[in-house]
Simulated scan of single mutants.
Amino acid sequence: MSKSKALTMKRLGRSMKYQYVKLLRSPGGAKKVAMGFAIGFGLEFMVISTAMLVYIIFYPLVRVARGSMPAAIIGHVIGKLTFLPIPMLGLGKCLGDLILPFHIHMPAWLPGWLEGFLNVQLKTLIGMTLISTALGILTYPIVYYLYEANRKRRAEKLARKLLQVQDNGQ
Rank of each mutant, 00 (worst) to 15 (best):
S2Y: 05
K3V: 03
K5V: 07
A6W: 02
L7A: 13
K10R: 14
L12C: 08
L12P: 03
L12E: 15
R14M: 13
M16Y: 12
Y18L: 01
K22I: 00
G29M: 03
K31T: 08
V33K: 02
A34E: 04
M35T: 15
G36W: 03
I39A: 04
F41A: 00
F41I: 01
G42V: 00
G42L: 00
G42A: 01
L43M: 14
L43I: 03
M46S: 06
V47A: 08
V47T: 08
I48S: 10
I48A: 12
S49Y: 00
M52W: 05
M52I: 00
L53V: 05
V54I: 15
I56Y: 08
I57A: 15
I57K: 09
R63E: 13
A65G: 07
S68F: 01
M69Y: 10
I74Q: 08
I74T: 13
I74C: 10
G75P: 12
G75F: 11
H76F: 15
H76P: 01
V77C: 13
I78V: 14
L81H: 02
T82S: 15
T82K: 04
P87M: 06
P87K: 09
P87Y: 01
L89E: 13
G90A: 10
G90E: 06
G90D: 05
K93G: 02
K93E: 10
K93R: 07
D97R: 15
L98E: 05
P101C: 04
F102A: 10
H103I: 10
H103P: 01
I104F: 12
H105S: 12
H105Y: 02
H105Q: 10
P107I: 00
A108K: 04
W109T: 14
W113Q: 13
G116L: 07
F117E: 12
L118V: 08
L118H: 07
N119R: 12
N119C: 12
N119T: 12
V120N: 15
V120W: 15
K123P: 11
T124L: 12
T124V: 09
G127D: 09
I131T: 09
L135H: 03
G136N: 07
P141A: 07
Y144L: 08
L146N: 09
L146G: 02
L146A: 11
N150W: 00
R151Y: 04
A155G: 02
R160E: 11
K161A: 11
L162Y: 07
Q164H: 10
V165T: 10
V165Y: 07
D167G: 02
G169H: 05
Q170Y: 01
